[in-house]
């Protein structure tokens, strides 16, 4: 009983911290983007504008939550829930520190792949149910992008799985005691990072949303807290990919002593989140066909090559 209570408390704490981080990232992103564009960003509400998040939350909760009369109502409501649910479920396998995790699954990584595949449904259904040509175009682009990048996202991580000999994320972290996997698996790290950007459809791969072409893509018709869930879902996605990169390639909670393991994890994770923002600040959006040909013609063969070489080397040294 006591053990169950402790586990559920940990799960609730992780959930609250994650949602807070995702909301706070709105402020972090605006401030950092501003810094990289020689501006200040929101700095009026509270110290350094940190209460901007609270102001935005109040605003978005009081906005009219409008469902267009031409929309497919039930699917329209379901779509934003899917993105939040799948991403939050994916977090359950991430070991933030020894003991601070929700589920120690032996197929942890596969669970993440399953959840991120389901996440594609949120884009597709959201765009379809909106019954709007821009939304549909965004949904079509989004589904193609997410499905094709899913493939080598999985393949790029197989090198890590081969080296660690396990799908369990805790085992993968422990296997990095001597050397973090981004050194032997550098190619896999780069491919996973690119695939991660495409998977969260963040800039420069925000082709499903593409403000300049599709208004807001698949969430054009969304307003109020439904839009807010897509928005928070995007930031949760960034956090998830950053946490996964930290876990899989940068030794998770392993650090250099003097700080508690969870702090090391968070430091590494935030470094990657900031890198996501830096990418947004500096790179232009590629054309849709460029994105697809980069994925299928370059990154997919490279991830096969990475898998082949890693497997061969592991077999050779066994």
């Amino acid at each position: 009983m006591n053990e169950t209570l402790k586990l559920s408390l940990i799960a609730i704490a992780i959930l609250l911290v994650l949602v807070t981080i995702a909301a706070g990232l709105i402020w972090v992103e605006r401030r950092m983007l501003a810094a990289w564009q020689d501006r200040y960003g929101p700095n009026r509400v509270g110290t350094f504008g940190i209460l901007q998040v609270a102001a935005d939350m109040i605003k978005i909760f009081f906005k009219e939550d409008w469902i267009p009369p031409f929309a497919d109502k039930s699917v329209f409501i379901l779509a934003p829930a899917i993105v939040m649910t799948t991403i939050l479920l994916s977090f359950s396998i991430i070991p933030f520190a020894p003991g601070i995790l929700v589920a120690d699954l032996n197929i942890g990584l596969l669970f993440f792949f399953a959840m991120s595949s389901l996440g594609a449904y949120s884009v597709v259904l959201g765009g379809w149910a909106s019954n709007n040509k821009y939304s549909l175009l965004g949904a079509v682009r989004g589904s193609a992008q997410m499905i094709s990048y899913e493939i080598f996202m999985g393949l790029s991580l197989m090198g890590v799985v081969i080296m660690a000999g396990s799908f369990n994320l805790t085992d993968i972290v422990l296997a990095q005691k001597n050397v973090w996997f981004f050194i032997p698996q550098f190619l896999g790290f780069v491919i996973f990072f690119i695939a991660g950007i495409a998977e969260t459809h963040r800039l420069p791969f925000d082709i499903p949303e593409a403000e300049s072409e599709l208004i807001a893509g698949y969430h054009t018709e969304y307003s109020g807290m439904k839009f807010g869930m897509f928005f928070i879902g995007e930031y949760l996605g960034i956090t998830l990919i950053s946490a996964l990169i930290t876990t899989l390639f940068f030794g998770g909670w392993l650090g250099f002593g003097f700080l508690p393991p969870v702090v090391w994890f968070l430091i590494k994770m935030f470094a990657f989140i900031l890198f996501f923002v830096l990418l947004r600040a500096s790179l232009p959006r590629p054309r849709y066909d460029q994105l697809m040909s980069l994925g299928w013609k370059i990154l997919l063969p490279l991830s096969f090559l990475n898998l082949l070489v890693t497997g061969a080397l592991v077999l050779y040294f066994q």
Partner: peptide, 21 residues
């Protein structure tokens, strides 16, 4: 050029802000 533009953008963090508050 991608890495270069990332680096140049990063260096903008230390530039003077153009905003007049």
């Amino acid at each position: 050029s991608i890495l270069r533009s990332l680096w140049i953008t990063f260096l903008h963090m230390f530039h003077k802000r153009v905003t007049i508050e």
